[in-house]
Amino acid sequence: MIIRRYIFLVILLVTSIAYFLSPSDRALPIQTLYQVISIGAALVALYASRIYGFKSANGRAIILIAAGLVVWAIAEIVWYVLQSFMGNNDFPTVTDIFFLLAYPIWGFGIYQGFTTAEVKLVRVRKSLLTLVFSASIILTILVSYFGIYQAYDPNADLLANIVAIFYGLGDLVLIILSLLTILVASEYRGGKLASFWKTMAAGFFVFLVADILFAMYRDQFMADIKPYAYIDLMWLSGYLLIAYAMLENYAHVYLVQKQIRLKLQQRR
């Protein structure tokens, strides 16, 4: 487990160094590195989630979250091809369909996790509830202002404005999802599944902060101005956190399967 954790940390560290040292973070080598890591993380998550099968209630939640991550990775690839090879910086494009599609998929997944956990709010520590709701209110204000109100551009066409506002709405959904993952983690206190959901919450929170920063500093980000270009590292952190959580969870379930198969063999 420690080795796995260090691998993910090393990947993030090496990527961060590459970003810091690169004269241009929108250049092909850096963006290719970003793609490799984000797609790799999404595939790891998808592979790890398969151990459950879709018939398991807990499994459905985890598979749907992994699927959402894969959809985002597809969006990243499309954006990479359009920007890096076709010089297309238009908004919106087909990329946005995939980015926006991930939010309802994650929504279904986390809702499934929430209903499976049968969260009882009376059991959640009041201090945790207060912290989470306070953070949610602050984030809601930030998203509503930067992601929805400021997203409206009177010079852009209707479609561009609709898509831009939908991203803000997607981030409002992400706030709710992050809140639900923390409540689910609380329900499984003391168990490995609690660690899984806490890491998920951290991953979604990092995605959310990256999205807010992107909404605030989109022009500077697209102009490749440091440190705004480092918002990419936050998205990458989110990918890596979710992949790490999936892999740790997979390792545990795999171990459980291995142990019971061994007991069966010893019996024969």
Binding site: I51, Y52, G53, K55, S56, A57, N58, G59, T116, L193, V253, V256, Q257, I260, R261, K263, L264, R267
Partner: peptide, 18 residues
């Protein structure tokens, strides 16, 4: 099966027989 998935549940099903 609810928490660990069907594959794990199938192995436990065999184990629980005796």
């Amino acid at each position: 099966s609810k928490y660990f998935g069907q594959n794990t549940a199938k192995v436990y099903d065999k184990f629980f027989v005796d």
